[in-house]
Amino acid sequence: MLKTRFTEEFGVEHPIVQGGMMWVGRAELAAAVSNAGGLGIITALTQPTPDALAREIERCRELTDKPFGVNLTLTLSIDPPPYAEYRQVIIESGVTIVETAGSDPTVHVEHLKEHGIKVIHKCTSVRHALKAERIGVDAVSIDGFECAGHPGEDDVPGLVLIPAAADALTIPFVASGGFADGRGLAAALALGADGINMGTRFMCTQESPIHENIKKQIVGASELDTQLIFRQLRNTMRASRNAVSEEVVDILNKGGRFKDVKDLVAGSRGRKVYEEGDPEFGIWTVGVVQGLIRDIPTAGEVVRRTAAEAEERLRGLGPEAVDVPAPASVV
């Protein structure tokens, strides 16, 4: 068994976190990951109202007695969701772990910490991770350029970002972006991380609530089949390469602005992709790591085999293979 600062701090068996993905992070998936010894995450804003989130948390609690968390992604918007109400539901529901992402989480972190809730903040750079550490988060999830969704604007891949974070941070952190199996977990631990966060890999599991066509699309895709959109707007997003993402890039390359593509990138279209299974209908996020995904197992199998393979690879190195302290113990 792999024991790290993350497993000790968050009370999980394996240093594996399921990403808090929009339209994907529902009770069945989160519970399956947690039951296998990882940390499952419900996505708060997938639920249309705070009351719906309360019901989803209760559903997850009925499916697992293991630790699970809730993701609260903070966006800058002229019509933002009622974040304070979602946060209050999380507190009143007795959730003990929250993953924040997006814009400055200070107010949320302070309130959550007052109620004894552990906070993981997702970042795309070391400087943002250091700020998160200063405001008191318990851990950081740091996203390399390979990740699905928003990788930031620095374009630093995990092979550099992970050890850079390890050198700078004193709190535990998990590496995110580009992880699908035990080889990646072993590599992340060797680079100084305390665990990994997997999103795309858990999208492609039996408990994932997305349409089977989309899971098969991921299995059949390569590492070349993603598209970076919004680069011109300094709000880069990695999505599946399809006719819609190509059109968005073309419009922006010709000088278009967000108003010219807003209907193409509407979240309602992305949600419909997941619900109805047409991968060409809208923008949907997926990571470069889809090139390593070749099956649709249960989420529990993903957790168990990822941990087992990482242990085997780390043991294979042997203490004589390296002359640096081990980032994790194998017990």
Rank of each mutant, 00 (worst) to 15 (best):
E223G: 15
D250Q: 14
Q227L: 02
D263Q: 05
F230T: 05
K259Q: 11
R238C: 11
P209C: 00
K254L: 10
E212N: 11
M198H: 04
N213D: 13
S208H: 03
R269G: 07
G220E: 11
E247Q: 15
G195E: 08
R231A: 14
N235L: 12
E246Q: 14
A221Q: 00
A243L: 07
N242A: 07
A190S: 14
R231E: 15
L191G: 02
S222K: 05
G195Y: 06
E247H: 03
A243D: 13
R257N: 13
N235R: 12
T200L: 06
A221T: 00
T236Y: 00
G199I: 08
A190Y: 03
E276M: 12
S208G: 03
A221V: 01
V273L: 02
M203L: 11
E212P: 01
S208M: 06
G199R: 04
S245N: 11
L264T: 11
K216V: 05
G267N: 03
A266H: 09
R234Y: 13
R234M: 13
S240A: 15
G195M: 06
A239E: 03
S268T: 08
E247A: 04
C204D: 07
E275A: 13
R201F: 03
E246M: 13
R257M: 09
S268K: 13
L252V: 10
L224P: 02
L228H: 12
Q217D: 09
E247C: 08
D225T: 01
K215Q: 04
Q232T: 07
E207T: 10
I214E: 03
D250R: 15
F258H: 08
A221F: 01
M198Q: 12
K254C: 09
D263E: 15
L228C: 12
R257F: 06
K262F: 05
A239M: 12
G267R: 04
N235K: 14
D225L: 06
S208K: 00
T236C: 13
T226F: 15
E246I: 09
G267A: 10
I210Y: 06
R241H: 14
I210W: 09
T205D: 01
A193V: 05
A266C: 10
D260W: 04
I196H: 00
K254W: 04
T200I: 00
R241E: 11
V265D: 02
E207W: 05
K272R: 14
D263H: 10
L191M: 13
L264Q: 08
M237K: 14
I251P: 01
G220D: 10
